[in-house]
């Protein structure tokens, strides 16, 4: 069964799904993307024939829980699954109007020009041994050369680095440029990471759990910074997150992943009202909110599903989804 069938079963698509940006080719088109891991006990399918398209400037949330395959999907799109025991297949993978052709001989991944990515924890993502300024300038220099403008001048690169720190709201520019990641606070690191990810002018930003390492207030700040900046440059964003509420709040569309498949694609603003897949419905109900304080008992996947189906027995969906494969290889 292909992912498309699953989506069709999940309910009628909203218009936004079938054609995100009218009359415009999508920035990213994926068909039947499958990722398999070879393990000692046989092959495990982490991503199972997933198909979707992302419009120019569109923001999509890819939500799911551990083991759903969402992080693996992100890594596959960015071309990071170069391990010997990982097999990535797809019938179509178009980015910015051209099919992505990846060198499968090199273990060290190559960059996909125009595709940038940020990761969960800025502390572990930023290069620990170089100052922020150096990391920022390295990207600005490379981007300048790629534009065909030759090697940009030192002063120009420096000026651009300051400008980017300023854009993400880091005021103490000179100190941040000289600081190494561990010398900054968590919120500052996150902003620095966003600056570095965006200063090369990507067309698509994949954000893998961009807020899970942050406190709630910082998480919102980081999301807002990221989305404002990508909005200004019409960069498409794929936010991979386990936080279904936060993710859908900041995006145009929400994809829900379960067991390696995309089981639901909805307009984010109407996700709560239109979700039909039992897993999505249960997930939305399970998220603790401030209103939960009034409850005697929190809803669980099992209890919600029993309520929906009227059967007081766990069905296939309600069993605790055990991680089918390692989330990030």
């Amino acid at each position: 069964m292909t992912a498309r069938n699953v989506i069709d079963e999940a309910g009628p698509r909203t218009t936004a799904v079938s054609d995100p940006v009218e009359g415009d080719a999508p920035i990213l088109a994926v068909e039947d993307l499958t990722v398999r891991y070879g393990t000692r006990s046989g092959e495990v399918t982490a991503v199972d024939a997933v198909s979707f398209a992302l419009g120019h400037g569109e923001r999509v949330a890819l939500v799911g829980e551990s083991g759903s395959g969402k992080s693996t999907l992100g890594l596959a799109l960015a071309g990071f699954l170069t391990q010997d025991n990982v097999h990535v297949e797809c019938s179509r993978l178009d980015f910015a109007g051209a099919a992505l052709d990846r060198d499968t001989r090199s273990r060290l991944p190559r960059r996909t020009p125009g595709l940038s990515m940020i990761f969960q924890d800025a502390m572990t993502t930023l290069d620990p041994v170089w100052p922020i300024g150096s990391q920022l300038r390295a990207v600005i220099r490379a981007a300048g050369r790629a534009d065909g403008g030759g090697r940009p001048s030192r002063a120009d690169v420096r000026e651009r680095a300051r400008y980017w720190l300023d854009r993400v709201g880091l005021r103490d520019t000179e100190r941040v440029l000289r600081a190494r990641p561990y010398e900054l606070s968590g919120g500052m690191r996150q902003r620095a990471m966003i600056a570095i990810a965006l200063c090369g002018g990507p067309k698509l930003l994949i954000a893998d759990e961009p807020t899970s390492a942050l406190d709630a207030s910082l998480a919102r700040e980081a999301m807002e910074t990221m989305l404002t900046l990508t909005g200004q440059s019409s960069t498409s964003v794929l936010v991979i997150s386990h936080d279904i509420l936060l993710a859908q709040e900041y995006t145009d569309r929400t994809f829900v992943m379960y067991g390696g498949r995309i089981v639901e694609q909805r307009t984010s603003a109407r996700l709560v009202d239109t979700a039909t897949h039992p897993y999505t419905v249960a997930l939305l109900r399970c998220v603790p909110t401030l209103a939960s304080a009034e409850l005697d008992e929190l809803p669980t996947l099992a209890s919600v599903n029993a309520e929906i189906t009227g059967v007081d027995e766990p069905t296939e969906v309600t069993g605790t989804p055990e991680p089918a494969a390692k989330e990030s290889a």
Partner: peptide, 25 residues
């Protein structure tokens, strides 16, 4: 304020102006 539940409005979260400093230069 950081823990408010699912949004009930339609699409406001995306276009709402956010407190982000505009570039100096």
């Amino acid at each position: 304020a950081a823990f408010h539940g699912p949004r009930s409005d339609t699409g406001a979260g995306v276009d709402a102006p956010v407190a982000l400093p505009l570039p100096r230069s």
